[in-house]
Simulated assay, not measured.
Amino acid sequence: MIVMDAGSSRFQFRAGALIWRSGHVLIHRAVSDPFWALPGGRVELHETSAEALAREIKEEMGCAAAIGPLRFVIENFFELGGRKAHEIGFYYEAELPRPFPFHETDIVHRSRDTNTDLEFRWVRPQSFGPGAIDLKPGPLVDLIATSSEGVVHVVHRD
Protein backbone atom coordinates (compact mmCIF):
# COMPACT_ATOMS: atom_id res chain seq x y z
CA MET A 1 0.00 0.00 0.00
CA ILE A 2 1.14 3.53 -0.65
CA VAL A 3 1.80 4.80 2.86
CA MET A 4 4.77 6.78 4.08
CA ASP A 5 5.45 7.47 7.74
CA ALA A 6 7.75 10.34 8.73
CA GLY A 7 8.05 10.81 12.46
CA SER A 8 4.56 11.43 13.82
CA SER A 9 3.11 12.11 10.35
CA ARG A 10 1.67 9.83 7.69
CA PHE A 11 0.94 10.17 3.97
CA GLN A 12 -1.43 7.73 2.26
CA PHE A 13 -3.15 7.28 -1.09
CA ARG A 14 -6.78 6.07 -0.89
CA ALA A 15 -9.53 5.17 -3.34
CA GLY A 16 -13.21 5.25 -2.37
CA ALA A 17 -16.54 4.25 -3.92
CA LEU A 18 -19.80 6.13 -4.21
CA ILE A 19 -22.33 3.27 -4.42
CA TRP A 20 -26.06 4.08 -4.57
CA ARG A 21 -29.23 2.05 -4.05
CA SER A 22 -32.78 3.36 -3.59
CA GLY A 23 -31.62 6.87 -2.65
CA HIS A 24 -29.11 5.50 -0.14
CA VAL A 25 -25.32 5.52 -0.28
CA LEU A 26 -23.19 2.66 1.09
CA ILE A 27 -20.80 3.55 3.92
CA HIS A 28 -18.47 1.52 6.10
CA ARG A 29 -16.27 1.79 9.17
CA ALA A 30 -13.90 -0.12 11.35
CA VAL A 31 -16.07 -1.27 14.26
CA SER A 32 -13.73 0.56 16.66
CA ASP A 33 -14.04 3.92 14.81
CA PRO A 34 -16.60 6.58 15.74
CA PHE A 35 -16.73 7.84 12.11
CA TRP A 36 -17.81 6.35 8.76
CA ALA A 37 -16.25 6.50 5.28
CA LEU A 38 -17.11 5.48 1.74
CA PRO A 39 -16.00 1.90 1.00
CA GLY A 40 -12.50 1.55 -0.38
CA GLY A 41 -8.96 1.43 0.84
CA ARG A 42 -5.34 2.18 0.17
CA VAL A 43 -3.81 1.99 -3.28
CA GLU A 44 -0.88 -0.41 -3.80
CA LEU A 45 2.29 0.38 -5.72
CA HIS A 46 1.91 -0.16 -9.51
CA GLU A 47 -1.90 -0.21 -9.18
CA THR A 48 -4.25 2.46 -10.49
CA SER A 49 -6.71 3.93 -8.03
CA ALA A 50 -9.61 2.33 -9.96
CA GLU A 51 -7.89 -1.08 -9.82
CA ALA A 52 -7.31 -0.62 -6.09
CA LEU A 53 -10.96 0.21 -5.55
CA ALA A 54 -12.14 -2.88 -7.45
CA ARG A 55 -9.71 -5.02 -5.42
CA GLU A 56 -10.79 -3.52 -2.08
CA ILE A 57 -14.50 -4.03 -2.85
CA LYS A 58 -13.85 -7.66 -3.81
CA GLU A 59 -11.79 -8.26 -0.63
CA GLU A 60 -14.10 -6.47 1.81
CA MET A 61 -17.53 -7.05 0.28
CA GLY A 62 -17.01 -10.37 -1.49
CA CYS A 63 -18.35 -9.20 -4.84
CA ALA A 64 -17.08 -7.61 -8.02
CA ALA A 65 -17.84 -3.98 -8.77
CA ALA A 66 -18.03 -1.97 -11.96
CA ILE A 67 -15.92 1.12 -11.34
CA GLY A 68 -17.36 4.19 -13.03
CA PRO A 69 -16.12 7.73 -13.53
CA LEU A 70 -13.92 9.64 -11.12
CA ARG A 71 -16.09 12.15 -9.19
CA PHE A 72 -13.89 13.73 -6.51
CA VAL A 73 -10.25 14.19 -5.61
CA ILE A 74 -9.81 15.18 -1.99
CA GLU A 75 -6.55 16.30 -0.43
CA ASN A 76 -7.36 15.59 3.20
CA PHE A 77 -5.30 16.82 6.17
CA PHE A 78 -6.38 15.44 9.55
CA GLU A 79 -5.21 13.98 12.83
CA LEU A 80 -6.02 10.45 13.96
CA GLY A 81 -4.72 8.76 17.07
CA GLY A 82 -2.26 11.57 17.76
CA ARG A 83 -0.75 11.32 14.28
CA LYS A 84 -0.98 14.02 11.61
CA ALA A 85 -2.12 12.59 8.29
CA HIS A 86 -2.07 13.79 4.69
CA GLU A 87 -4.30 11.68 2.46
CA ILE A 88 -4.97 11.93 -1.25
CA GLY A 89 -8.32 10.31 -2.02
CA PHE A 90 -9.77 9.46 -5.44
CA TYR A 91 -13.53 8.80 -5.24
CA TYR A 92 -15.34 7.00 -8.05
CA GLU A 93 -18.92 6.13 -8.88
CA ALA A 94 -19.22 2.35 -8.58
CA GLU A 95 -21.91 -0.23 -9.13
CA LEU A 96 -22.37 -3.64 -7.57
CA PRO A 97 -23.47 -5.94 -10.41
CA ARG A 98 -24.94 -8.62 -8.20
CA PRO A 99 -27.40 -8.04 -5.38
CA PHE A 100 -25.80 -6.80 -2.18
CA PRO A 101 -27.88 -6.78 1.03
CA PHE A 102 -30.02 -3.70 1.50
CA HIS A 103 -31.78 -2.52 4.64
CA GLU A 104 -32.50 1.09 5.62
CA THR A 105 -31.43 0.90 9.28
CA ASP A 106 -29.30 -2.19 9.89
CA ILE A 107 -25.71 -3.17 9.30
CA VAL A 108 -25.97 -5.18 6.06
CA HIS A 109 -22.48 -6.68 5.83
CA ARG A 110 -19.53 -7.43 8.09
CA SER A 111 -16.03 -8.48 7.11
CA ARG A 112 -12.48 -8.60 8.42
CA ASP A 113 -9.65 -6.66 6.77
CA THR A 114 -6.35 -7.96 8.18
CA ASN A 115 -6.88 -7.25 11.91
CA THR A 116 -9.82 -4.86 11.52
CA ASP A 117 -13.50 -5.75 11.73
CA LEU A 118 -15.56 -3.72 9.23
CA GLU A 119 -19.28 -3.06 9.02
CA PHE A 120 -21.32 -1.67 6.13
CA ARG A 121 -24.68 0.08 6.02
CA TRP A 122 -26.87 2.04 3.62
CA VAL A 123 -27.85 5.61 4.59
CA ARG A 124 -29.67 8.54 3.06
CA PRO A 125 -27.36 11.52 2.45
CA GLN A 126 -29.51 13.66 4.75
CA SER A 127 -28.34 11.42 7.64
CA PHE A 128 -24.89 13.03 7.62
CA GLY A 129 -23.89 15.96 9.75
CA PRO A 130 -23.48 17.22 13.31
CA GLY A 131 -25.20 15.02 15.85
CA ALA A 132 -25.84 12.37 13.19
CA ILE A 133 -23.61 10.09 11.11
CA ASP A 134 -20.05 11.41 11.03
CA LEU A 135 -18.77 10.80 7.48
CA LYS A 136 -15.08 11.40 6.78
CA PRO A 137 -13.59 13.25 5.06
CA GLY A 138 -15.98 16.10 5.85
CA PRO A 139 -16.38 17.52 2.32
CA LEU A 140 -18.03 14.27 1.16
CA VAL A 141 -21.22 15.27 2.98
CA ASP A 142 -21.78 18.17 0.56
CA LEU A 143 -20.19 16.54 -2.49
CA ILE A 144 -22.45 13.48 -2.35
CA ALA A 145 -25.54 15.69 -2.40
CA THR A 146 -24.45 17.57 -5.53
CA SER A 147 -24.29 16.41 -9.08
CA SER A 148 -21.60 18.07 -11.12
CA GLU A 149 -19.98 17.61 -14.48
CA GLY A 150 -16.35 16.59 -14.41
CA VAL A 151 -14.11 15.96 -11.43
CA VAL A 152 -14.33 18.09 -8.30
CA HIS A 153 -11.05 18.81 -6.47
CA VAL A 154 -11.20 19.74 -2.78
CA VAL A 155 -8.51 20.55 -0.21
CA HIS A 156 -9.80 19.84 3.29
CA ARG A 157 -8.10 20.57 6.61
CA ASP A 158 -9.73 19.10 9.71
Rank of each mutant, 00 (worst) to 15 (best):
V141K: 04
H46E: 12
R124Q: 12
R29K: 13
A30G: 00
P99F: 13
C63F: 02
H103V: 03
I107G: 03
A52R: 02
T105H: 15
E47S: 05
P99I: 15
A37R: 05
R83G: 00
L45R: 05
P139L: 01
D142C: 04
R121W: 08
F120L: 13
E59F: 11
I19C: 05
G81E: 09
P97T: 09
H109R: 11
L70I: 13
G131D: 08
V31F: 03
R121D: 00
W20Q: 14
E47R: 07
A94G: 07
T48F: 02
S9E: 13
E44T: 10
H86C: 03
A50D: 14
F102P: 01
R83Q: 08
L18F: 12
P39D: 01
R112F: 01
V154S: 02
E149R: 03
G89R: 13
P130Q: 15
F72L: 03
G81W: 11
E87R: 03
R55H: 06
A64S: 11
V73T: 14
H156P: 09
R55S: 02
C63W: 01
S32D: 10
T146M: 06
V3F: 15
E149D: 06
E95S: 12
V151L: 09
E79W: 06
K58T: 06
I107W: 06
E44S: 14
R98V: 14
G82R: 04
I27K: 02
K58A: 06
M1N: 11
A52S: 05
F102R: 07
D113E: 06
I88H: 12
S111R: 00
L143F: 06
M1S: 13
D117Q: 10
L18Q: 07
F35Q: 00
H156W: 14
D142K: 05
E75F: 08
A54N: 07
L118N: 04
A52E: 01
F128I: 05
A52Y: 02
L118S: 04
P139N: 08
S127W: 08
S147D: 11
G131M: 08
S49P: 12
W36D: 02
P101F: 11
V43W: 07
L53P: 04
I2L: 15
W122P: 09
S32R: 11
L118C: 03
A85Q: 15
K136F: 15
F72M: 07
I19K: 03
L118D: 01
G82H: 09
F100A: 10
A66W: 01
S147C: 05
P97C: 03
N115C: 04
R14F: 10
I88E: 14
R124A: 06
R55Q: 03
Y92P: 09
P137E: 11
G150K: 06
D5N: 13
L80N: 10
R157D: 08
S22P: 01
G89T: 15
V25E: 08
Y92H: 14
G138V: 02
A132H: 14
V141M: 09
A37S: 11
R112S: 00
I107Q: 04
L140N: 13
L80A: 08
G7N: 07
Q12H: 11
F35S: 03
I19A: 04
E95Q: 12
D158V: 01
A15Q: 07
G150F: 12
V108E: 01
I2N: 12
F102G: 02
L70H: 14
L18C: 08
P125Y: 12
R14Y: 07
V154T: 09
E79R: 10
F72R: 00
R98H: 13
F35N: 04
V152H: 07
A64D: 04
E51H: 04
G82S: 03
F120R: 13
